[in-house]
């Protein structure tokens, strides 16, 4: 059997000090696909993302990129293929925006480690796509949370990856900035066929932006499918252990409303 998937986890497990965080997960992501991962806290979402990024080694099973085991990749080669946008952007030093984005070129540098013109051009392109080119000379510490997260996305794009992994990229953003980031990601996916895998908390937002959702529960894949089939009252009760009301809006997107006990 030949694999056509770009990024594929095959029966992957991962254990932290005896505790199994991910158990026997199989997941295939095609080139140009957009996939959201959701699940309760501690269900292993970020761990799975680390496994897909190759920064964690599975204790069993394997992750393949273009059919080749991530373990067989040189780290720098991997960083040229897969970029990660983390949840938090804690910065210890006051880098300027352009400096931060250029760090994304690190896996591409050779020789004495100076950027060549095409490296600078790639960083500029990334800044243009994320709308932070005008901020190039500003210190990162002076930016708003939303601007800063766009800079981090620009850094990831400067890596010129085939796959973009996002780990709850909107957690610390207000609604407007969260939507901005997700619009940007969808746009990149549509225009450049960038493959996107994102861990998200908000099921309504995930259903709105992502054509495919998977839910994790206790490190296992609970469901995998289109929002309409996955975001249902029964599935959410089962996976998240909470009662919700799911309504389908006019454009066919399921909308999740929790049923509080106090009402």
């Amino acid at each position: 059997m030949t694999t056509t998937a770009l990024l594929e986890a095959e029966h992957v497990s991962f254990a932290y000090g005896g505790r199994r965080a991910i158990a026997d997960v199989a997941l295939a992501v095609d080139e140009g696909e957009m996939l959201a991962i959701a699940g309760p806290n501690g269900s292993g979402k970020s761990t799975l993302l680390g496994l897909l990024a190759g920064t964690r080694r599975p204790s069993a099973g394997s992750v393949r990129l273009g059919g080749r085991n991530l373990r067989d990749y040189d780290r720098r080669a991997l960083a040229r293929a897969i970029a990660v946008v983390p949840q938090e952007t804690g910065i210890a030093f006051p880098y300027r925006v352009a400096e931060m984005v250029l760090i994304g070129r690190a896996p591409h540098l050779h020789g004495i480690g100076l950027e060549r013109p095409h490296d600078v051009a790639a960083a500029e392109r990334a800044m243009e796509r994320t709308g932070v080119l005008a901020l190039a000379d500003r210190p990162l510490t002076e930016l708003s949370g939303g601007e800063r997260q766009r800079v981090i996305v620009a850094r990831a794009l400067a890596q010129e990856p085939r796959v973009l992994l996002l780990d709850e990229p909107t957690t610390f953003l207000d609604l407007r900035h969260a939507i901005e980031i997700l619009d940007l990601v969808v746009d990149l996916n549509r225009r450049e066929r960038l493959t996107v895998v994102a861990v998200l908390h908000d099921l309504t937002v995930a259903a709105m932006y992502f054509p495919r959702l998977v839910f994790l529960r206790d490190g296992r894949l609970a469901v995998d499918g289109a929002p309409a089939t996955v975001v249902t009252e029964a599935v959410i009760r089962d996976v998240f252990d909470v009662d919700v009301e799911v309504r389908t809006s006019a454009d066919g997107v399921p909308t999740v409303r929790p049923r509080g006990r106090s009402r």
Partner: peptide, 13 residues
């Protein structure tokens, strides 16, 4: 300086 995880994601051993 961005963190160990970030460095690993950027291809640093």
């Amino acid at each position: 300086s961005l963190g160990d995880d970030r460095a690993a994601e950027l291809g640093v051993d």
